[in-house]
Each structure stands twice: as C-alpha cells, then as structure tokens.
Amino acid sequence: MDEVPGVPADLLGGHLRVLEAAAATGRPPDRAALDGYRAAGARAAESGVSLRALVETALVMAESVRTVPLPVLRRAVSALMEGYENAQRLALRQEEAARREFVDDLLQGRADRLAERAEHFGLRLAETYVVAVARPAGPVSDGPTGGDGYGGATAVTDGDGSARRIEEALVARFGSHNVLVAVRDGGLVCVAPGSLAVATGEFTHHVRQMFAPGWRVGLGRAHRGPGGVVTSYREAANAIEFGDRLGLRASVLKASDLLVFPVLLRDRAAIEDLVTTVLSPLLDARGGPEPLLGTLEAVFASQGNQTAAARRLGVSTRAVTYRLERIRRLTGFSPDDPTQRFTLETAVLGARLLDWPAHPLR
C-alpha cells in the first residue's frame, strides 16, 4: 500500500480490518467501528493532518481490499470526516473563548500572563499601542430596537463574523503581528501599534464599508504597555460617550481633540456650580431653556457668526439675535464679550455632559 505523506501510519490502524470484515459478510460497520473512525478523524485534526490527506489515505487503503461494498466505504469515510469536522469546531470554539478571555483581561488590565498570551494573538505588549472603538451611535435604549440595544444602527455579536472579516483585511495589509480586532459590548475594538497610524484609519474605513450609517469610531491616544492599552481603550470609549452627550456630528472622534471634557468632569462639584450659577436663570425663560441652550451651541459652533448659526438652527438671523439678548438679560452673560463667552461656552458644555436640565443638579 502506498503511504500518503503527512499521515501517521497508525492513524487508521483498524481501517483494513473493518473493510475486510464488511467484504466478507456484507454487513456495514457497527457503532463501535464508526465511533473509532470519528476518533481517528478527531486525532487527525488535532495532529494537523489535512482532511484531504486523511480521506486519500482511507481510499488508498481500500484499494487493497477486494469487493469492498461502496456503501461501507462511504460510511467509513463519512464518519472520519464527521470526527475531523467536530474536532475543528471544538478547537475553534476553544480558540474564540480564549480570545474573548484575553481581550477582556487586556482591556480591563488584568495582568495574568498577558504578555505571553498576547504573543499568541499577534501583539507585542512592550510596544506603544492605540485602541479604536467602533459602535452604534447613541445611548443604549430600553425600548424596542430590534434586540440590539441601540436605537439606530445594529450592534454586532461574536457570531456574525464582522470582527474576523475586518481583522483578516487588516492582517492582509499590515501583517499578523500588528493588529487585533474583537467584539466587545455590541461594538468592535481594534488594537494597533502606535507607529502604524494608518491601521486605525483602515479599520475605520472597513467599519464604514461593512455597516449601515449610524456608527461612531473613537480613537484613543498612543500609550505603552498593557496598561497603555487599557488607557487608550478607555479614552476611545469615552470619546464616543462625549460625542453622544454633546450631540457632536462627527463620526470619528479623537480623544486628543476632546481632552477638555475629562478635565471638566474631574471636578464635578465645580462644573455643577458653574452650570447652576450661569445657566439656571434660563429655567425661567418662556418655552424653557432648551431653545436658548441650542442657540448658544449653534453660535459657538459657528465661531460667533449669527447668520451661520441661524442656518444651523433653521431660523432667521433676527431670531438668533433676539434669543442672545434674552440670554444676556436672564444670565448677565453675553457671548459677544470674550471672557463671558468662555464662561458661557464652558457652562453649556458642562450642561450637556451632565445632561442638564433633563437631570436637575443637586
């Protein structure tokens, strides 16, 4: 019998005996024999033998046995393939479970053999890394959203293959030891070297191509080591949160562009005092404070250009001028004065971060 390269000689040790018995009696393999074939298929998968080589070996061995019933050979090969495929599925599930556990440990800073495990997934944690987070824009809602938890775009899960397809595209371009893409909290996380800035841009491109509009991407800053990955991940996630709270229109938000907001929230008591002192008089405005807050946001976004602000709001320039005068009378602050403008803008940002006035301050 000719041997097939790469297949251990003893892998199908009982195959000839089963075929010879079937040729002599005409009976198909019994349950024990089929279980033996499944076990042999599993061992082949675990040993790295290709399925093609395994099946070819079984067929070559069958050529030495005369009058083997074709149904018998078919059942034997089918059992081999079943065992092989079952072993592959089990290995894949175990790999995915290990991957999820590693990603959770990495992003939460649990340092149990992180560097050693990172090498298995293509990361060298001594380097500087940047984390990008992509997820549907908008807060998680309790209402009917098609089961994904988001009001607009659809969240992803471990089983839909999105992360794997994006990672394969990035690996094809940048190499296997440069990027890690994983599903987390209904979105996607990409970990890439800080020296490879184009990788996060490519990740963003694939997110836009793969998913319907309504996704945001947050980009953390570059930091070194496992702790740096955690910091960059939190920065990226916070950038998306700030974008949602502030109603920012950009689909890509960089933590480096939003550094003022963590500073504002670091002293919550101070920002609450600022919002209360400067903006609480707007609560007495006819129609409520929201139109006036929206007008201030539009004016600040337009660098003080009231005509441009009116276009943003869909109202007349005269209406904007009137609202700004009401704000000046109620609060005593005017956006035309540089110092007062800064105070007003900071207070408005603080109000959005604290979701005021929807959530009254103590």
Rank of each mutant, 00 (worst) to 15 (best):
Y84L: 02
L196V: 14
A270S: 14
G161L: 06
A239W: 01
S78M: 09
F211Y: 15
D30I: 01
L253W: 00
P136Q: 04
F300T: 06
V77K: 07
S162D: 13
T321E: 13
V348P: 04
A285I: 04
P335T: 04
D257K: 11
V60F: 11
V181P: 04
Y84I: 02
L283Y: 05
D148I: 02
L246H: 01
S256M: 08
A309P: 07
A22L: 03
V230E: 02
P136V: 05
R286W: 06
P8A: 01
G151R: 14
R224K: 11
E96T: 12
E96H: 07
R27S: 12
W215H: 07
L19R: 11
L11I: 09
S280N: 13
H120A: 15
A79K: 06
Q306M: 09
A23T: 12
E63S: 13
R341P: 07
G194M: 02
V191I: 14
L264P: 09
V263H: 12
S47N: 05
G187C: 04
F121A: 03
P357K: 00
L353R: 01
R99T: 12
V156F: 03
A79L: 08
D185S: 14
Q209S: 15
T295Q: 04
E116N: 00
V179S: 01
G26R: 09
V191W: 00
A236Q: 07
A285G: 11
P262E: 09
R173I: 11
P335G: 03
P360A: 04
P5K: 05
G149C: 07
A172K: 11
Q303D: 15
W215F: 15
P193R: 00
L246P: 02
Q94Y: 02
S334C: 07
T67E: 14
A310E: 05
A199P: 11
V72W: 04
R135T: 12
A347H: 06
D337A: 05
G41W: 09
A285N: 09
A118K: 00
G109F: 00
A153K: 03
R66S: 13
L114C: 08
D2G: 09
L349W: 14
V156E: 10
A308I: 03
A111N: 13
A22I: 03
T346Q: 13
T154I: 11
